[in-house]
Computed example of a mutant assay.
Amino acid sequence: MSDRTELKEQLQIGCPAYIEGVGTSYGYIPSFGAGIAYCVLFGLSMILHTIQFTWKRQWWASVFSVGCLVEVIGWAGRTWSAKCPYNGDAFLMQICTLIIAPTFFTAGIYVILGRFIQLLGPESSIIKPKLYLWIFCTCDVISLVIQAIGGGMASGQADKIDGDTAPGTHIMVAGIVFQLFSITIFVFCAIDFINRVVRKRLLQSVNGSVIPLFAAMILSIVCIYIRSIYRTIELSQGWDGYLITHESYFIALDGAMMIVSVAVFNLLHPGWMLPSGKSDSFTMERTSVDRPDKHRGSPTHW
């Protein structure tokens, strides 16, 4: 037993090659190609987002750049693990960052939805715009703290011979289930918002440039929700579960979902498609559509 423990400790330091019959913390050797590909994709998205939010001075949109940076760090950790499959630092680096990263994307979506409510009027939502950011970001922070505590405990035990990862895993699952619950509530609020917008035909009374951004927001929410469901099931199966030990699911249901959820805002950036601040022109345009007789001929309307 002492020889196995000593071997395990030696493998976690430096960059020893894979040894047949000696398992890794992943249950496989991470794909070097996938690691490089996602580092490049998230890196490009980060650069574009940084240029876009700086150009348009939409500083709140920096959350997308920060999220991309955290994703790059996480996938760099997996790329490192592809060459050094036993290195404990590389494993801990990727597991912590890739759990945290989506929170920055959801924060951006909360702001976008709040801006839409400001533009379309209070009748478009059951919650005030600012409350979206406060309520759901608070829930995200709580879930991340729980996941970080559990992840640290579990990863520490995973590197030990016969280490007990169950307590840490249970805490991680509790954190991600709480996150899934909060995102589910947000999804229901978003569905209610969409239903109100469609039923009251609110989008017909505003500039058409926001409609593609509206679709982008929906796509991003769907991708993040799919990823959250996957991670919940994955972690609930434990460190030896089927999903967590088969990388193809992680590449498709975490990496791909996250790059779509953030890259769609490179193509349809809110800094280009939303007014900066509350838009009086939008408000007046909606007023003229809803009550054309009242403002007919008024010079202030034009």
Rank of each mutant, 00 (worst) to 15 (best):
S228K: 02
I221A: 04
V40D: 04
R201F: 07
D293F: 06
V262Y: 02
P122Y: 12
M1N: 14
G208M: 14
T79K: 02
F282T: 15
I171E: 08
S248M: 14
F181R: 03
I73A: 14
C137R: 03
D280Q: 14
I112M: 04
F32R: 11
T54Y: 11
L243C: 12
V264R: 15
F42K: 00
T54S: 15
K294C: 06
F53L: 07
F53V: 00
Y249K: 05
T184R: 03
N195M: 13
F53E: 10
S288L: 09
N266T: 12
I224K: 00
T54V: 06
T50G: 07
A37G: 08
Y86L: 12
P16W: 10
S261F: 00
A166K: 14
I229M: 06
F214C: 04
S155E: 13
N266Q: 03
G77N: 05
A166M: 07
W302V: 08
P212F: 09
C96A: 03
S236H: 01
V289I: 14
P270S: 05
D89W: 09
Q204L: 11
L92T: 14
G151W: 10
E234H: 02
I99R: 03
E6M: 12
M258K: 01
H246P: 03
D293G: 08
M153E: 13
S62F: 08
I149D: 03
W239G: 02
F186W: 08
I126G: 01
I183D: 14
S288R: 14
K8H: 07
M217A: 12
Q52M: 14
F104C: 03
V173N: 09
G23Y: 12
F282W: 15
S205E: 15
W134V: 05
H49T: 00
V187F: 09
I229C: 03
M258L: 13
A90M: 06
L213T: 07
F265S: 00
W60I: 11
L274M: 06
Q237H: 10
Y110N: 02
L11F: 08
A174I: 14
H246V: 00
E123D: 09
G238S: 03
G14H: 04
E71P: 04
I19M: 13
P102E: 02
V22K: 15
A17W: 03
A166P: 02
S25F: 11
T165L: 12
A256I: 01
R199A: 15
P85D: 10
I142A: 15
V66I: 12
L44P: 00
H170T: 08
E6S: 15
R286G: 13
I218P: 02
I259V: 10
I233W: 12
I73S: 10
L44N: 06
F186S: 07
F181S: 11
F193Q: 08
W239M: 06
T245K: 04
D293K: 09
G156S: 06
